[in-house]
Simulated assay, not measured.
Amino acid sequence: MTTSNATLVIGATGTTGRRVTAGLIAAGYRVKAAGRSATPVPGAQPVRFDWNEPATWGEALDGVDRVYLVPPIGSSDPGAAMLPFLRQARAAGVHRAVLLSSSAIPAGGPAVGRVHEELPGLFEEWAVLRPSWFMQNFAASTPHGRSIRDEGAIMSASDDGRVGFIDAEDIAAVAVRALTDDQAPDTDLILTGPQTLSYAEVAATIAEATGQPVVHRKLTFEELRDRWAAEIPLEFATMLAGMDRAIAGGAEDRTTDTVERLTGRPPGTFRSFVEREVA
Rank of each mutant, 00 (worst) to 15 (best):
A230N: 05
A168L: 08
N52P: 00
A172R: 05
H116F: 09
W57Y: 13
G17T: 04
L179H: 08
A203M: 10
A6T: 12
A34W: 07
V259R: 07
Q45C: 04
G164N: 14
M82W: 05
R261S: 02
M1L: 03
Y199R: 02
A44E: 05
R276M: 13
D181M: 10
P233M: 12
E277P: 00
V94Q: 02
P54W: 12
L224N: 06
A200V: 04
I10D: 08
E222R: 14
E260Y: 11
K218A: 14
S101T: 11
A60G: 01
D150A: 06
A34S: 08
R162N: 00
V98A: 10
D188C: 01
A172M: 02
V174I: 12
A140F: 15
R261D: 01
R130F: 04
Q88H: 08
F123V: 10
A230C: 01
Q212N: 09
P84H: 00
T15F: 00
A139I: 14
T7P: 02
F49N: 06
M239R: 13
R276L: 14
G58E: 11
R227T: 10
L69I: 15
T269C: 06
P233N: 07
K218M: 15
A168I: 05
P78E: 09
Q195M: 08
I206M: 12
R66W: 07
F49R: 12
N52A: 13
S272H: 11
G28S: 02
S272V: 04
P213G: 13
V115P: 01
P46Q: 00
P78D: 11
P194S: 11
L240G: 03
A33L: 14
D226W: 09
S4P: 00
T258R: 10
A200Y: 05
D62Q: 12
D50H: 03
G242P: 09
A60K: 06
A6G: 07
R66N: 05
S272Q: 15
T269N: 11
N52W: 07
I171H: 04
D253I: 07
R254M: 15
A92K: 03
L219I: 11
L191I: 07
